[in-house]
C-alpha cells in the first residue's frame, strides 16, 4: 500500500497547478454567477411571468414561473464555461495518465519499480476523483460564500449547492474514463486528448441539437439526447428535486467506472515501450 499512496501523493503534486487553477476559476465563477443572479433576479422573474422570447429561454434552462433563487442560480450553472473547466481537467488528467508518461519517458521510472499496473492506474483514478470532488466543492463553496455578499430572495444552503456540484463532477468522470482508456493504449498524449475532446464535443453538440425547438418532433431526437452525457447533467433539476438527479449521477459514475475498467484491462496487457 505504501507504493499506492506514494503514487497518489506524486499525482496530487503533479496535478496541483491545474487543480488550483480549475478550482479557483470555478470558485470565482460560482461567486460571479450568484452576483449576476442577484442583479438579474427581478428581471428574470418578470420574464418568467410573461410569455415572450425571454420566457422560452428561461424555460429551456428548466425554470418555471416564480422559481426559488437557487434555481435561477443553477440555470447559470449550465453555462459552457463551467462545463468546459471541469471537462478540461478531466480530459487533461486522462490523457496524461499513460500516453504522456511514455512520451516523456517518466513511466519507466515508475513501472521498473515493484508497482503493479493496476496500482499505477488505481492511484491515478483516485487522484482524479479527489480532484473532481475538490473542484466541485470549490464551485459550491464559491457560490455559497457569494450568498453572504449578494442579495437573493431565498439564499440556498451549502448542502443544497453541493448536489449540482457533484452532478458536475459526475459528468466529468466518464470524460476522464474514456480519455484514460484512449491514453492506456497509446504512446503519445495528443492522440488520447484529441479523441477524448472529440467525443466530448460530439456529446455536447448532440445535446445542443436535441434542444433546438425545430427538431422537437424528429425521430432521432431521443437518440441524440440519450447519446449525450450532457443530458445527465441537470443542475436546476438537482436543486428543485425534479428529474432523476441520483439516477443520472449513478449512470454517469457507472459509465466512468466502466471506461476506467476498460483502461485497466488494456493497460494490464499492453507492452510498455521505451520512449525513444
Amino acid at each position: 500500500m505504501k507504493a499506492f499512496w506514494t503514487l497518489v501523493a506524486k499525482n496530487l503534486h503533479d496535478a496541483r497547478w491545474s487543480l488550483f487553477l480549475t478550482s479557483s476559476l470555478l470558485g470565482f465563477l460560482g461567486w460571479l454567477l450568484v452576483h449576476v443572479a442577484s442583479l438579474q433576479e427581478t428581471k428574470i422573474r418578470q420574464a418568467l411571468a410573461g410569455s415572450g422570447k425571454g420566457f422560452r429561454w428561461m424555460q429551456g434552462m428548466g425554470l418555471d414561473a416564480d422559481p426559488p433563487s437557487v434555481e435561477i442560480m443553477m440555470a447559470f450553472w449550465n453555462h459552457p464555461f463551467i462545463i468546459l473547466l471541469a471537462a478540461m481537467f478531466a480530459l487533461g488528467r486522462g490523457a496524461g495518465a499513460v500516453g504522456a508518461e511514455i512520451e516523456r519517458g517518466t513511466l519507466d521510472m515508475v513501472m521498473s519499480r515493484p508497482v503493479s499496473r493496476s496500482t499505477y492506474l488505481a492511484a491515478h483514478a483516485l487522484t482524479t476523483a479527489l480532484g473532481l470532488l475538490a473542484i466541485a466543492a470549490s464551485l459550491a463553496v464559491g457560490a455559497y460564500a457569494a450568498t453572504f455578499y449578494n442579495v437573493l430572495k431565498s439564499p440556498p444552503s451549502l448542502g443544497l449547492l453541493m448536489e449540482p456540484a457533484l452532478n458536475l463532477a459526475a459528468l466529468a468522470w466518464p470524460m476522464y474514463g474514456y480519455t484514460l482508456w484512449f491514453s492506456s493504449m497509446d504512446i503519445v498524449r495528443w492522440r488520447a486528448l484529441t479523441a477524448g475532446s472529440a467525443l466530448t464535443l460530439a456529446g455536447f453538440i448532440a445535446r445542443v441539437i436535441a434542444m433546438i425547438p425545430v427538431f422537437k418532433d424528429s425521430w432521432w431526437r431521443p437518440w441524440a439526447e440519450r447519446a449525450s452525457l450532457f443530458t445527465l447533467y441537470d443542475p436546476v433539476g438537482a436543486v428543485a428535486g425534479r428529474g432523476h438527479c441520483e439516477r443520472d449521477m449513478a449512470i454517469l459514475l457507472a459509465l466512468g467506472a466502466g471506461f476506467v475498467a476498460l483502461a485497466f484491462l488494456v493497460f494490464a496487457h499492453r507492452d510498455l515501450p521505451a520512449n525513444s
Binding site: G105, T106, A274
Partner: peptide, 15 residues
C-alpha cells in the same frame, strides 16, 4: 521480478 531487481533505464527522465 521487479521486487528483486533494480533497473536503471538508458534514457532517463525524471519529474
Amino acid at each position: 521480478v521487479r521486487r528483486l531487481v533494480s533497473y536503471l533505464p538508458g534514457e532517463l527522465r525524471m519529474p
